[in-house]
Design a protein around this nucleic acid. Sequence first.
RNA 1: UGGGGCGUCGCCAAGUGGUAAGGCACCUGGUUUUGGUCCAGGCAUUCCGAGGUUCGAAUCCUUGCGCCCCAGCCA
Length: 573
Amino acid sequence: MNSSAVAPAKSSDFIRDIINDDLEAGRHKKVITRFPPEPNGFLHIGHAKSICLNFGIALEYREKLPDSGTRCHLRFDDTDPIKEDTLFEDGIQEDIRWLGFDWDGLYHASDYFEKMYEYAEHLITAGKAYVCSLSDPEIKEYRGSVTTPGRESPYRTRSVEENIDLFRRMRAGEFKDGEHVLRGKADMSNPNMKMRDPLLYRIRHTEHHMTGATWCIYPMYDYAHPISDAIEGITHSICTLEFENNRELYDWVVDNLIDYAKFPSCPHQYEFARLNLNYTVMSKRRLLELVEGKHVRGWDDPRLPTIAGLRRRGYTPESIRAFCTSVGVAKANSTVDMAQLEFCIRDDLNHKAPRVLAVLKPLKVVIENYPDTDVEELDASYWPHDVPKEGTRKVPFCREIYIEQDDFMLEPPKDYFRLAPGKEVRLRYAYCITCTDIIKDSNGAVVEVRCTYDPDTRPGSNPVNRKVKGTIHWVSARHAVDAEVRLYDRLLLEEAAPAGKDSEFLHSINPNALQVLNNCKLERSLATSQPGDRFQFERQGYFIADSKDSKPGAPVFNRIVTLKDSWARSQKK
RNA sequence: UGGGGCGUCGCCAAGUGGUAAGGCACCUGGUUUUGGUCCAGGCAUUCCGAGGUUCGAAUCCUUGCGCCCCAGCCA
């Protein structure tokens, strides 16, 4: 792993504490984790937290326990054939690899369907499971509520022989969907609803993307997951908080099977708080709704917190890993500030992205005392003094240039360092210019600024006493490369999406989350930029040539993140 | 009126009886041809509240309060 953005001295959390404890007590000699996504959607940054945790632990402990067999599996939790697809598996694998991780073994829960079936028969034989023929609504009714105990199913007392016969016929396809289910015989009055005779198998006459038409009964998550873990020898099964109630059932399954199945490990489940970010949505349902409702341009829309979206937006894997490390792992529900993510990408790109000049909202400047026929090739460093990297390019300087509209003000406040009538600014890597006149259109808007330049301020030959506070970026009009630039901002207007179950959160979408600029002027050197190239557009932010739409000669850039802007901040007050 | 969890600075988060780490954000000053970076400094007498135990409590006890999760043949 090549994490350079943040190298925490010692990252510890309650899960690593547990692992250390288990190791010291001799309960385990190796650590095996797994990342178990359901292949029914795309990964988002919340998954990245889990990926960093599970794969990160394997990496760390493999170093501490070489040759121990410490590892992390990728396992697709594919127990519901209705929602799952190979397409998603490919995307998930790509995202994990892109994040910088590799799995020690790729598995599917469906690899174990035959074993699971065998174990189910064992459970029946042991009197721990039965075929229940209650209807869906009846099962719900018998389950009781959180405040009232459930009632036992009338089918609970079926004989082992009858149960086995029925279960085999379920497998053979003799029954329709919903006619029977296999249930664990646990405790209908358990205050933990998950323990009220949990469903283990349901009938689904649906082809599975891995097993095809082999099965028409499929195991439920609560049954399949602990078994998959145990078969793979998982030692620490890490999941999110909403599964806390399921842990008792997880243990029930393992306990009832471990002697019979001779599992290589007795896995235990530990839960941590999932990641939430403000000003965006993280749930599969909402992400799906945004994509299918065409509110964004697909799963990799840079407005989305999906891994694919962040990648296209220009986030680096290092920055996402650093972010996951920085937020920690704990059990308190929390919502991390987007500013923390933004810090991580700025921090990473600061020393990775070469600086270039680009004018996003151009304003023409004519330098009246500069000969129209002249062109000067000025040296411009790709790196600021504080980044220890070499590299320069030439930027052409001419009589007509573009500057940023925001860098000119008719009536500026005292602390405005940029261009204004009668005021002087430094052009980055070039001369100082002074505004002598302005040209307005019929509406009174400034369409052109006239300036004079001071030949004495040529870079490298500055007059000693020259104090010019402001430096602005610019691009030679004659040499500028036209480009489209997509300015991205937070997805939502509000910190938290409205909680409603309906599509209410759609009203909270920030209409300016994407702003497309079509008249941008880039410095000449950017004409040949390749998709995926990242730059800092000086004074503005970090940008990446879009992986899909940018072409050499016709660049399209995405804004990854703005630079911090203390001027803008002070102006808001 | 059930059960399982959680409550430490605006946002994360260490801390597990010895007198509140760190990061983000924010504020101040310095450096600076990016109002960026970097550097220096500031930012919880207090840990959801109230009692109690103790020489000493965020950490132990009691008792309130608040928030999250569980009644899919989803995961």
